[in-house]
Computed example of a mutant assay.
Amino acid sequence: MSDLFSALRLPIPALPAGMVLLRRRADPAALWPVIQGLAAQSPFRFMTTKRGGTMAAAMTSAGACGWVSDARGYRYESRDPLTGQPWPAMPKAFAALAADAAAEAGFPGFAPDACLVNRYAVRAGMGLHRDGDERDFDQPIVSVSLGLPASFLVGGLDKDDKPQAIGLESGDVLVFGGPARLLYHGIRPVKAGEDPLFGPFRYNLTFRRAR
Rank of each mutant, 00 (worst) to 15 (best):
P88V: 07
D138I: 05
D172T: 06
G186E: 01
V175I: 15
F201T: 01
D113Y: 03
G125D: 06
A121D: 14
A111V: 13
K159Y: 07
L157V: 09
A95I: 10
S170D: 11
W87I: 05
I141V: 15
Q164D: 10
D136Q: 08
R130F: 11
K191W: 05
L148N: 00
N118D: 05
L82C: 05
D195R: 05
A98W: 02
G147D: 04
S151H: 13
V175W: 01
R208H: 06
S145I: 03
G177H: 04
V144Q: 03
L153T: 09
P196T: 12
R119V: 10
G193K: 13
R209E: 11
A101C: 15
A103C: 12
D113V: 01
A95G: 11
D138Y: 07
Q139F: 04
L148S: 00
A99M: 06
G125F: 04
D172W: 03
A103S: 14
D80Y: 08
E104I: 06
D136M: 06
E169I: 14
E104C: 12
P149I: 11
S145P: 03
A121P: 08
V175E: 00
Q164K: 09
V142S: 04
V144R: 00
A121I: 06
L97C: 04
D131H: 08
V173F: 10
F198R: 06
L182C: 12
F94R: 00
L97F: 05
D136Y: 07
G109V: 10
V190I: 15
R209F: 09
Q164M: 14
D136I: 05
V117T: 07
